[in-house]
Design a protein around this nucleic acid. Structure first.
Length: 749
DNA sequence: ACGCCCCCACTTTTT
DNA sequence: GTGGGGGCGT
């Protein structure tokens, strides 16, 4: 067969990867080196040249966006036959497998998928059942341990066997109780989707055999982000043939907190003997300046293979460094630059603004709004996280799977129908004692004479309503079911009766949900309640973002991975923000921050701006962060400073600062959320509202103090005298100094 | 059972 | 600066 025409568009290493035949293949793909092109062309090559039928190919990605893009690009190469190809995320792929096979593990195929918030609720209940105090075992911390175990495909028993003390044994026990709860609820969490698929394949050789025969070639994108469970899954899937092609770049591993381990990519040749390794080092995206700057940063890391990324785009504009007084001026600078760029011919859609944490988007948004620049924010507060949306979705979940205890608890009294905490608690106790799902316990209440008449009736009515909806859902469209739910539950009626600005906005969100259901039905041929529920839990808001050429895009650096923009702004380049304060103590974590910085920088094609604010408000108190260490790692000749570097290195003057106590005061104006608070200054911390002059602050420079958020620090100086003095506190962590104005209550130690 | 209010923890990143 | 959970009073 003649070589396909499209190979002409590839450079030699790309071509080598694309035309590799059987056996393991690792493609080390530097940023912007055309890895998606290699993956898609390779699929086209397998199909068109090696005669592999599309159903025999599995391509796995991490995000739905990446999956969608790959499917699109393969379709462009192969046409209609591409439809038979299975391209999906790890989680969606496992969901589809489990929907078919999970009965082998004794679960119901109608399982629901719990998100992180649902998980916290389950951990709470598991703690209660284990007789542990939430205040000692923080639910989120326990969940972190459970998730970590799941990322390594460890069962509760495995974790118990590894326990090295009473506390870890307790956690293993909570994990067991947690798992029990999930099972009675017919629910799986994200970690289970992978872990149980691994378990299924390990325990049922005939099942895994079926999938091995089905998928004779497996391709994995972003291999550096795989965790141990995913690694084991891949091994099981490819079996002895090892027709496996993985693409990745250890410099872009930014998900180790989710269990991703660089080990998988670094040890690929050991894991899959005889593997061919191809390095893609030519970057087609960025100017040489940007590439050099980003490379200089990531080069500081120890755990990586040396790389020589190069581009034939010489020179380029210098990386712009901007030091602003505070976050407002920083945002204003960005907006002004965007305007200037417009004059140069850049469109808003060419421009992206990255930040480390979602909370940072707000200031930028305000400035963009003020300047009338259209923008889109990716991620952040998710639509599906809104209370009213979650309520309606919980109805759908319970209709689909009545055993779903988390969903049931959520909706049982929403809108209020007179079923209170006591009743739910009693039902939970009964459920635990009898080992039955919560809805079974409730059913007994509704039938049991020992239950109070009124409660019996209310619970009975509620269950009957769910049952009615369930019947209607059997053969209805999802949109019809949603509308039935809205009608039958009186959810919207309740909001209308409330008639507050808040309830109106909730009504709008519900309307939006209904609209999104219609959109889902239009775009999905086999739309069903189950597939809709899977979709919304497995798809993030960012995935659904339509391309909007006239909008500037705002997102975290994490969600920027895999994207590219002609112009990139990275804001908040400050110590303890980027690298983040939670990473400072751990050198490995700092290396991850550095990789994240590298990922952000290499998204830029033509222009890159890095900025920081000398002062910034964090949780309501003012902080002065030093410039990010990543600044200093960029060779100066690649930089153009748009403001004097020293100007804001340390606070010269600070504005207001006293010991602050927040108290409610009658008659104060309500805030946006309807709360009446009044900021009153009082150094005693006891009481305000008196008319006498406040006493002088009992502070001197050099004194050790404790701040509720930042921990121990030292009084750097006091500006001014008496109670009007401004107090600057210096905090130090892992060699990083943070200054802040003492706004919160300080304790002298 | 309900609603108001206080207090706390949260915010690093997401399938 | 914000959302949620728990406590308290009705």
């Amino acid at each position: 067969m003649p070589e396909p025409e499209f190979l002409r568009f590839l450079n030699p290493p790309q071509r080598e990867a694309v035309t590799h035949g059987e056996g393991p293949l690792l493609v080390v793909a530097g940023a912007g080196s055309g890895k998606t092109r290699v993956l898609t062309y390779r699929i086209a090559y397998l199909v068109g040249h090696l005669g592999i039928a599309p159903p025999h190919i599995l391509a796995v990605t991490f995000t739905n966006k990446a999956a969608g893009e790959m499917r699109e690009r393969v379709r462009a190469l192969l046409g209609a036959s591409a439809a038979a190809l299975w391209v999906g995320t790890f989680h969606s792929t496992c969901t589809r497998i489990l929907r078919k096979e999970i009965h082998h593990l004794g679960y119901s195929p109608g399982f629901v998928i719990y998100d992180e918030k649902d998980q916290v609720g389950v951990v709470r209940e598991a703690l209660r059942r284990s007789g542990l105090d939430e205040r000692v075992y923080a639910p989120r911390a326990v969940l972190w341990h459970i998730d970590r175990a799941k990322n390594e495909a460890l069962s509760p028993e495995d974790l118990a066997a590894r326990a090295d003390g009473p506390q870890s044994a307790q956690i293993a026990q909570v994990y067991a109780a947690y798992q029990q709860l999930l099972r009675t609820s017919s629910a799986l969490d994200f970690g289970d989707l992978i872990r149980l698929t691994v378990l299924l394949f390990e325990r049922h050789p005939r099942v895994v055999q079926w999938y091995r025969e089905r998928w004779r070639h497996v391709l994995v994108d972003e291999y550096q982000d795989t965790n141990t469970a995913q690694y084991r899954l891949i091994r099981l899937l490819v079996g002895g043939t090892s027709n496996l092609c993985v693409v990745g770049d250890e410099d872009q591993n930014v998900y180790s907190w989710r269990g991703a381990t660089i080990r998988n990519i670094l040890d690929f040749e050991k894991d899959f003997p005889g593997a061919r390794v191809v390095k893609l080092e030519q970057n087609y995206r960025s100017t040489n300046v940007i590439l050099q700057a980003a490379g200089a940063v990531v080069r500081r890391n120890r755990r990586r293979r040396p790389k020589a990324l190069w581009t034939d785009r010489p020179g380029g504009d210098l990386v712009v460094l901007h030091e602003a007084r505070d976050e407002f001026e920083e945002a204003r600078f960005v907006v002004e630059e965007i305007r200037r760029l417009a004059a140069e011919g850049y469109r808003p859609g060419d421009i992206a603004i990255f930040y480390r944490t979602n909370a940072q988007s707000r200031v930028v948004e305000e400035q963009l709004l003020g300047a009338n620049v259209a923008y889109t924010v990716l991620g952040g507060v998710r639509f599906y996280d809104r209370a009213e949306v979650k309520d309606l979705l919980a109805y759908l979940r319970v209709i689909h799977n009545p055993a779903d205890a988390v969903g049931l608890k959520r909706i049982i009294n929403s809108p209020p129908r007179g079923i209170g905490k006591t009743t739910v608690e009693r039902a939970e106790t009964l459920a635990r004692e009898e080992g039955i799902p919560l809805h079974e316990a409730l059913r007994r209440f509704s039938q049991d004479d020992s239950t109070l008449g009124a409660t019996r009736r209310k619970v009975g009515d509620f269950l009957a309503m769910i049952e009615r909806l369930r019947e209607k859902a059997q053969d209805g469209l999802v949109s019809a079911i949603v509308q039935k739910v809205i009608m039958e539950t009186g959810y919207v009626r309740h909001l209308v009766e409330e008639d507050s600005p808040e309830s109106r906005s909730r009504g709008e969100n519900i309307q939006e949900l209904v609209t999104s259901v219609f959109a889902f039905e239009e775009s999905t041929p086999d739309a069903s309640l189950a597939s809709y529920l899977d979709q919304i839990t497995l798809v993030s808001d960012a995935d659904g973002l339509a391309k909007t050429p006239d909008h500037v895009v705002l997102m975290t650096v994490h969600s920027a991975k895999g994207l590219e923009f002609p112009v990139v702004f990275m804001v908040g380049m400050e110590e303890s923000l980027f690298p983040h304060s939670l990473s400072l103590d751990d050198p490995e974590a700092v290396e991850e921050e550095r990789r994240l910085c590298y990922v952000g920088m290499t998204r830029a094609k033509n222009r890159l701006y890095l900025s920081r604010a000398g002062a910034r408000r964090v949780y309501g108190s003012l902080r002065f962060n030093e410039p990010s260490r990543f600044f200093a790692e960029i060779p100066p000749e690649l930089l153009s400073a748009s403001s004097p570097f020293e100007a804001f290195a340390a606070p010269k003057r600070v504005h207001a600062a006293r010991r602050t106590v927040i108290r409610k005061r009658a008659g104060a104006a309500p805030d946006r959320r309807g709360r009446t608070i009044d900021y009153s200054y009082d150094q005693s911390g006891e009481h305000d509202g008196n008319d006498g002059a406040p006493e002088p602050l009992p502070l001197e420079s050099g004194m050790r103090v404790r701040h509720p958020n930042l921990g121990f620090g030292t009084v750097d100086r006091l500006d001014g005298e008496g109670a009007r003095a401004r107090v600057v506190i210096r905090f130090e962590r892992a060699g990083v100094r943070t200054f802040m104005l003492a706004y919160a209550e300080l304790e002298i130690v």
